[in-house]
């Protein structure tokens, strides 16, 4: 009887120790698995392609799978040719490259947002957890909502960033959602970017859905 109790206590003590030890390790933003990369082959649902929409600025971006629902602000280019980023203080704010393709139009639209700020997780913290076939929706100023499907999630090192693959046009309406990721060090910060590749598969008439 008391030996059973003793075992229970020992197991509880071990579980407690494990929790403390495991919890003390640093938690980093989710990283995509190799199965979500282009190299792993296309997803079953990526065949559908919708005809591009006429250009109209975006209002909000939603990614239901990772609970993202964020307004989009316009972003320009920094002096070095890199994309500007939204002000980091607001954890729920992303931006789109306003001099490029608007989401839903023919070409490649680019959206960027922070994975975290100094205080904690930000809008695209969960981007690395996306899966092929997940939906991304962008409501637009013309009242339409452009619906995209995720083709792949890739991770790129900052010093080997494939500009054309990420920013280049593929002749249809595509979307890139970019945030930081790919390992972190205290000295140099995040090593690269997590990039979600998506293409237009449908259009809804209402801006809210």
């Amino acid at each position: 009887m008391s030996s059973t109790k003793g075992w229970c206590l020992a197991i509880a003590a071990c579980a407690g120790l494990w929790l403390v030890q495991n919890g003390s390790r640093d938690v980093t933003p989710p990283m995509p698995t190799a199965a979500e990369a282009f190299a792993a082959g296309p997803h079953a649902h990526t065949d559908a392609v919708a005809a591009p929409l006429p250009p109209a600025g975006p209002l909000r971006l939603r990614i239901p799978y990772i609970d993202v629902d964020t307004p989009l602000i316009g972003l320009g280019l920094a002096k070095d040719g890199g994309l500007e980023v939204p002000p980091p203080a607001d954890p729920n704010l992303a931006g789109w490259y306003r001099d490029g393709t608007p989401p839903g139009a023919k070409g490649t639209a680019v959206v960027a947002g922070h994975v975290d700020n100094a205080k904690g997780p930000a809008v695209f913290y969960g981007l690395g957890a996306l899966k092929k076939g997940n939906r991304i929706e962008v409501s637009r100023q013309d009242g339409r909502t452009a619906v995209f499907t995720v083709d792949a999630i890739e991770v790129y090192e900052a010093d080997a960033f494939p500009d054309d693959e990420v920013y280049g046009s593929r002749g249809r309406a595509e979307l890139r959602v970019i945030t930081c990721g790919g390992g972190f060090s205290e000295k140099s910060g995040y090593r690269g970017n997590v990039v979600a590749f998506a293409h237009l598969i449908g259009v809804r008439a209402g801006a809210e859905g």
Binding site: D26, P29, G81, V85, K106, H114, D116, F184, Y190, N193
Partner: peptide, 25 residues
Amino acid sequence: GGQGGHHQQPSGHVQTGVGGSIGPD
């Protein structure tokens, strides 16, 4: 891109995080 209004495409990676989410659970 086959659509009006193109100036230049961005280049390089994007600085979108400072590590504030990283820490013990």
